[in-house]
Amino acid sequence: MKVIRALLSSDAVTAHIRQAYSLAEPIQAQLLATGDNDSYLIESAGWRGVCRVYSLRLQPGFSHDERRCELAWLLHLAERGVRVSTPVPRRDGALLGRLDAPEGMRDLALFTWAEGESAAFSNLEGMERFGQRLAELHLASMRFQTRLPRMAIDRKRLVDTPLERITGLLQELRLEPELARLQALAEPIRRRLDSFPSDEASHGFIHGDCNGENHHLTPDGQVVFFDMDLSGPGWFAYDPAVLLWTMRRAGVPAPDIVESGARCIAGYQRVRPLASWELEALDDLVLARHFWVMGEHIVDIPSLGALRVGPSYWRLAITRILEWQQTPLVPLIRERLSREGAP
């Protein structure tokens, strides 16, 4: 009997942690969340961490070596003063291990706990600090070098591959009008992504999932980044664009998105000024992010079901993309920055 995805018990994870890591007893695991991967809180004699059990997806995803690359990058950032949740070495010195699960061998890593708490988008001071620390992360990433592979966050990953998945599913569902509309909406986005430079000044290892839930603010005003399993080489502008996409998709009113987004960009530019094309690219990258998410939802059909990507899903997607194209955020953010005298 084939298993697509198993949820490991807390006892099974506890047993693996006890065997593989040099932690003090008592050791206890508790499931925190399931998503692209499964995360468990690990408590050990007053110490806390998070164990991530990476999923085995049916579509091509990150390889074992690509995940090793992610962990090496996190250590690189920490060594340069960026506050990140870092991998904990195993007894054998490795950062990434494997666990025998019903569906096959799953990669596993243990991370330090990210201190602090999530901040609301309306926390403007928090948005500004986040922008500053994100820029510092990008500057530190410029010096990251490795021979390990890592999937790029580029046009292929954001738009081309998702569009191939969308085409296959919508043809199967016989939603030809919706497919034709999405293909037409994707084409100008693809052309604009092709025009973006990929030089060292604007391109490097990025977080890849700055959705507002993957960083914490500490009481002393610091920002701690975590859940960076979607990271990879990409345009630096993509990270703040994901924050804007998250607010748009959540239905945050446009004036509030502009206010929060402008404070984030203002903080970012105090550390790393954005080139003019990077600021202009934010709206296009918001749309590219939405295509990527749609593609990921198709990948998840075998484990999460097909109901959530039925006909109404695609009609709403078209409505959203059209609305976002017709109401770009960048002119409003630029005006807000100019009014405040921000860089």
Score class of each variant (00 low, 15 high):
E323D: 14
L139T: 00
I42T: 05
R67K: 13
Y238V: 00
S141Q: 01
M105N: 06
A152H: 12
F121K: 04
W292Q: 10
P328M: 13
A72M: 14
Y313C: 10
H203D: 06
P233S: 10
A306R: 14
R289C: 01
L99E: 04
I298A: 12
A78S: 09
I153T: 07
R339F: 07
I301S: 08
P177Y: 05
A119K: 11
Q59G: 11
H138L: 04
R48I: 08
C264E: 02
L279H: 02
A120L: 13
R248Q: 14
G61D: 13
F291V: 01
A94Q: 14
S122P: 02
V50I: 15
D36Y: 07
L77T: 00
P343C: 10
P255E: 10
E335G: 09
A201T: 10
T161K: 15
A109W: 02
S312H: 11
L217A: 13
I27T: 09
Y268F: 13
L182N: 03
L244R: 00
D256R: 15
C264L: 14
W245K: 03
I27V: 15
L169Q: 13
N214W: 09
W73I: 05
R320M: 13
M228E: 03
W235V: 00
T167D: 14
H297M: 15
M151G: 12
I189R: 06
D229I: 00
I318Q: 12
F205M: 12
A186R: 12
S22K: 07
P197V: 03
P328Y: 12
E172K: 10
V84G: 05
R91Y: 09
S141Y: 04
E172L: 15
G93Y: 14
D229R: 03
E323Q: 12
M142K: 05
L99D: 02
T327E: 15
M228T: 02
L148P: 05
T319A: 14
P273Q: 10
A120N: 11
G116M: 14
V242G: 00
D229M: 09
A119S: 11
